[in-house]
Design a protein around this nucleic acid. Sequence first.
DNA 1: CGACTAGTTGAGGCCAGTCAATGTTGGTGG
DNA 2: CCACCAACATTGACTGGCCTCAACTAGTCG
Lengths: 260, 260
Amino acid sequence: MTSSSVAMLARPATVSALTAPRVGSYCDHKEHCDSCSLRELCLPVGLERESIRLLDRIVPNRSRVKRRESLYRPGDAFGAVYAIRLGTFKTLMLAEDGREQITGCYMNGEIVGLDGIGDGRHTCGAVALEDSEVCALSFAQLCKLAHDIPALGRNLNRCISKDLCRGQHMMLLLGSMRAEERLVVFLLNLSGRYRARGYSGSEFVLRMTREEIASLLGLKLETVSRVFSRLHGEGLIQVQGRSIKLLDLPALQAMVSQGT
Amino acid sequence: MTSSSVAMLARPATVSALTAPRVGSYCDHKEHCDSCSLRELCLPVGLERESIRLLDRIVPNRSRVKRRESLYRPGDAFGAVYAIRLGTFKTLMLAEDGREQITGCYMNGEIVGLDGIGDGRHTCGAVALEDSEVCALSFAQLCKLAHDIPALGRNLNRCISKDLCRGQHMMLLLGSMRAEERLVVFLLNLSGRYRARGYSGSEFVLRMTREEIASLLGLKLETVSRVFSRLHGEGLIQVQGRSIKLLDLPALQAMVSQGT
DNA sequence: CGACTAGTTGAGGCCAGTCAATGTTGGTGG
DNA sequence: CCACCAACATTGACTGGCCTCAACTAGTCG
């Protein structure tokens, strides 16, 4: 089952797109792990050259995923995890009544799909927020390789655990913060992650709609819009559609580190 | 660092209790994994006899943790994960301003402490809700052993990933459900887990105070109390302090699977 | 240009929070 | 064994933050 899923990824786009457009198309160029700019954020972090070469051998060509396309859907059989090479993804869960809750936002260098390891089935879905590219890693092959490269196994464990911590932080946010705090935490989080990637941490473009941000933060889109406007009015940020400029980082930090 | 942490666990109670009462006391009897009633819920699940014997060798004697004692605290160095042999634990996060958010409730056969793998430091704390017993597993030793027993490594990965999924479900709950739904989901969740352990799934005793339940569900204690009373009034449950009886499981299920 | 999607803003309502008083329970020591 | 106290829980009245509904604007794409 794992192999078939990965085999599918290697097939040309048209076929899979007609049946189930999970992974859009196939990239003809191969970027190797050891020359990838995300080497230090992704699974290879800290691995020695030779180990990276071995890892590289199980990484197939990158796959393109177009905006709005699903990488996997809730309930899908689990076969691979995906390293985001380029772009942004949201993960979402479906309630029994069909409501959709966005549970995370992942950017390049991060891994999605780890939620499927538990019981061989994805509990979440992952959808591209913009045209993106991922490296699909067969989980079976990854495990086999991790056995030969202990450091890779550790990195894998770390990735899952970090995702777990991310979830804990979201629970803290959803369980105990007011709308304004949630949004500020969200912005500061993005800021830090962009900075870690060498982009500006004070000026960036949101990849999500107001509605998606609202879902992620447990709010309604109007509330998100209103809070943006209020922060703008207070001179703390500048908002122009999805373009965000954080004008007063210290003040924003203070808003979430002190009560109220 | 890992070894020292585990060494501490093996020391008699008085010493560690005086300095840092992380793990209360030390049990003089040794229960072996292969005769443990939680074999099928815990890490050994599906392992062959010989593998379980090897795992057993790195499991030290059980440690007692008294009610209200911390197994580990947010920020503690990570060295071990803990299999709950007996009792119940809550995990909690601290906000920067000191607010405390309960992020989970774990019972026997479950593993806590996995959040520390990510960056070598626990993001959460774990506190016993009643007098409990845990098997502390040195993570370093566990990894070493997982290398020799691939199935154990898979189980470990599964445990972390399942915890991740648990978090996703909590996000769904916190992000999109109303007070009543949250509480019903919580009760049904407990019900299922008690049933999986051979206890009654329709009649059990809560280990948490109203305030703890409220924190876990992102509510206030008065709201929890009110919703309990309302459900009681509607004949769906029977509440007597912390004793709960679920009187109409199908109706409760229906409340959370249909919108509203 | 019209249809559509995304975003903003306002008015009003409701669910859950807040504050406060009272009741209940369980552990402790006389 | 019972009285006492503190922690836990319930209930009521009121408030307020966020949701709902709705109107309107600004881009975007066929």
